[in-house]
């Protein structure tokens, strides 16, 4: 079979397949600005929250300098800086990959999902650490009669709710990352078959 006429025929038919005029009305410039605003707000919030935690711990310590408060402030400073450093390290170079070749993009996509799985593992570890500090701390205060039963129950309830919300979020993120990783892996297998 002479294959060039075949290719020409396919090409001619292929090129007739156009005309999705409706989508040209889509205002992606507004969407871009909305996404940028959201991204900036998220970064600003994350940074402001970290700065607030560090300053607040310093303020409380300055107002009431005791060994217990000092220990608390040190925990806040270390965990805040630790989380910020981990986040920066984990997501470094993971963005602005859209114009790379498909092969590089697939690698980067996989790395991004692996980073998400790493973030989830870190999140579980960090949550465990926070609970490991907060629960004994609140319980000691309660058994020393420094807090009421009502206050203790409220604090523990709040911790439980917060922990459950984080666990649900971690599970969802992990599921999504695993699913995307599997699909990317499937694509890579097809890619490597050549």
């Amino acid at each position: 079979m002479n294959t060039e006429p075949e290719l020409d025929w396919w090409r001619a038919e292929w090129k007739k397949a156009v005309g999705m005029e409706t989508v040209n009305a889509y205002n992606f410039r507004n969407e871009y600005q909305r996404q940028q605003r959201w991204l900036r707000a998220r970064h600003a919030f994350g940074l402001s929250f970290a700065v607030f935690l560090i300053c607040y711990a310093g303020y409380v310590l300055r107002r009431e300098f005791r060994a217990e408060i000092l220990a608390w402030a040190i925990v806040v400073w270390i965990t805040t800086l630790g989380v910020t450093a981990f986040s920066m390290w984990n997501w470094r170079g993971m963005w602005s990959i859209s114009a790379r070749s498909v092969r590089e993009y697939a690698d980067a996509f996989e790395r991004r999902n692996l980073a998400m799985l790493r973030a989830v593992r870190f999140g579980y570890w960090f949550l465990g650490l926070q609970l490991g500090i907060a629960v004994p701390w609140l319980s000691i205060d309660f058994f020393r009669h420094q807090t009421s039963v009502r206050q203790y129950a409220m604090d523990m309830g709040f911790l439980c709710m917060l922990s459950l919300a984080f666990v649900a979020w971690f599970k969802r993120s992990r599921r999504k990352a695993m699913r995307e990783l599997n699909h990317a892996e499937e694509f890579r297998r097809g890619w490597q078959a050549d």
Binding site: I97, S98, A99, R100, S101, V102, Y105, A106, F109, F187
Partner: peptide
């Protein structure tokens, strides 16, 4: 590149 990557 952008189109294929986004589609993938």
């Amino acid at each position: 590149r952008i189109a294929h990557n986004r589609a993938l």
